[in-house]
Structures are given as C-alpha cells and as structure tokens.
Computed example of a mutant assay.
Amino acid sequence: MGIGQNINFLTTQHSITQDILKNSRNISVIVASTDNAMGMPAAFVLSMKMIQRYRPKYICMVGICAGIKGKGKIGDPIIADRVWDYGSGKHIIKKVDEKRIEAFKPYINQIALNKELAAQFSNIILKNLYLDQIQSSWPHDYNNKLMARIGPFASGSAVIANENKLNEIKEQHGQLLGFDMESYAIFYAADNCSHPKLTPFIIKSISDFGDSHKSNPKKDEYQEFAAFTSANLFYQFVVSHLE
C-alpha cells in the first residue's frame, strides 16, 4: 500500500482500537486480546482469526518478555530479528562416560524478520531514536538509560523462573536476547497464512530475567514500565517509519 492508503495492523496484547493519523492518511490499528490466555496456541489461533477477517498488511505483538542478564536492562525494548520455538526438539538418551543420561536435542526452525524492517529498526538503535523521550515520559527514574536491541528471540510453552532451564535455552543460540510464550506463533501464523501475505514484527520490553528472582517486590511496576516502553516504541515506529 502506498501513501494515502490505510495501513492495517494487528496487535495482540491490549484491548483498545486506535486510528493513528499520519500526514493525510489514517493508520488503522486493529487490537485483539486472548482474554489473558497465554502461550503459542492461543496466540496462533487468535492471529489466524484476525488475519482471515481483516487481512492486515502487518501483524505486531507488543508487551513484556524475559531478557538475558548482561544483554539488556529492565524496560529495554527487544526487536526480534529471528524467532523459534525453544521447546521444539527430541528428548533422547545419550552415553556420557559410560553412563546413560537424558538429553534434549532442539530443532531450531527460525523465522526471520523482514530485511527492510530489520534495517529500519537497526537505524533506530544506531541513532538512539525515541528512547530518551519515552523514558522521560515515565513517572519513575530507574537510573538506567533505555536502549533498544535487535537480535535472536525464542518462545516456549512455560513461564521460566529457573536458572537451569534458562541456561538450556541460552545454549540454543549464543546471541539470544530474550524469550516469551507467544512471539514464534505470531511469526508462524504470518508465514503460513494464505495470500496476500503480511509482515510480522515483535517489539517486547524486558520485565524480568527468567530466573528465581522473577517474583520480586517491583514485579508489577517493572511489567508496567516494560509494557509502556514497548507500546511507545511501536507507536513511534509506525508513525515515523512505515509507508
């Protein structure tokens, strides 16, 4: 679609419908909710229903995710440049020093972000656009400068609050930035829907690090902050970068 035409989006975290005015055209944002049902099956079914009904040009998921310590801070937005299901694989028995032990062999079937969108997000990160403004709009000061990041992102079927499980996921990709329970389903739905195809992208911000400290006293506040930074970066990207 060119300038002067509507651009339709599907997001899957909130329950508000909004038309965004950009120059002389409206950008129609179609917002859907899973009624608090988490996980890839719920996200996939909802996405397919919305795709079939509205045929949007883009599909996006915003919200919160777990990050990798040392590769992000609370509130930092992550843009997935590839997504996979970290729980997809084969449970095996292997021999180690003559002992039979259980092991997991992952099947890492990645779906990549559209190259044009990846370049646009990389430019935002390089120039550090929008994040200072977004951070200054938040009522609390965390003394940490927000930074957006783009890189590998994984999804799975369970909430992770376990360092051992986290280490298993990190071993699947050395550059992993974060993980959640839904994003792979969004990419998979877009990749497998009927024509015309649409473009998926994910903007999720870090609210925890998937370890045993997940339920800290500031959990709700961190989740609110992460949701805020994610949604605001989505807005700025839509109005400033998409045609």
Rank of each mutant, 00 (worst) to 15 (best):
K99A: 10
R25L: 08
G151L: 11
R100W: 12
K127R: 08
I150M: 03
S183N: 09
E163C: 05
I108V: 09
A189S: 02
E102G: 11
Y142Q: 04
A226Q: 04
R82Q: 10
L166K: 13
F153M: 10
A119L: 07
H91Q: 15
H213D: 03
G63N: 13
K145D: 00
Y184N: 05
N128Y: 01
V238Y: 10
I93T: 13
K145V: 00
E98C: 03
N144T: 10
N128L: 04
L129N: 06
V31I: 08
S240V: 03
G67H: 07
N6A: 15
I78F: 04
Y58A: 02
I30Q: 15
Q13E: 11
G89K: 10
C60R: 10
M181T: 01
L126R: 15
P196S: 07
A42L: 00
S157F: 02
P77S: 04
I93Q: 06
R55Y: 12
A42P: 00
Y86F: 13
A80W: 10
A190D: 03
G70R: 15
I108Y: 12
M48N: 10
L177W: 11
F104Q: 08
R55S: 06
G151H: 12
P139V: 02
A66F: 07
K127T: 06
S24K: 13
T34I: 01
A154S: 12
A185R: 09
F153A: 05
N6Y: 15
S136A: 07
A161C: 13
T34Y: 09
S88V: 14
I16W: 09
A32G: 11
L233H: 05
G151C: 06
L126V: 09
G156H: 15
A226L: 01
Q135C: 00
L21P: 00
M40V: 01
S155I: 06
N114V: 06
I51F: 12
N36P: 09
K69M: 08
A231F: 14
G2Y: 13
Y188T: 06
N162D: 05
Y58P: 01
D191G: 08
I202L: 08
F9L: 04
I124Y: 13
V96N: 03
A226D: 00
I150W: 14
N6P: 03
R53G: 11
N109M: 02
K127D: 04
S207E: 05
R82P: 01
G70Q: 12
F44N: 09
L126I: 05
L166G: 04
P196T: 04
I202R: 11
N232K: 04
K218V: 06
Q223W: 14
Y184T: 07
C193S: 14
A161Y: 15
E98V: 00
I68E: 01
G39T: 04
D220Y: 13
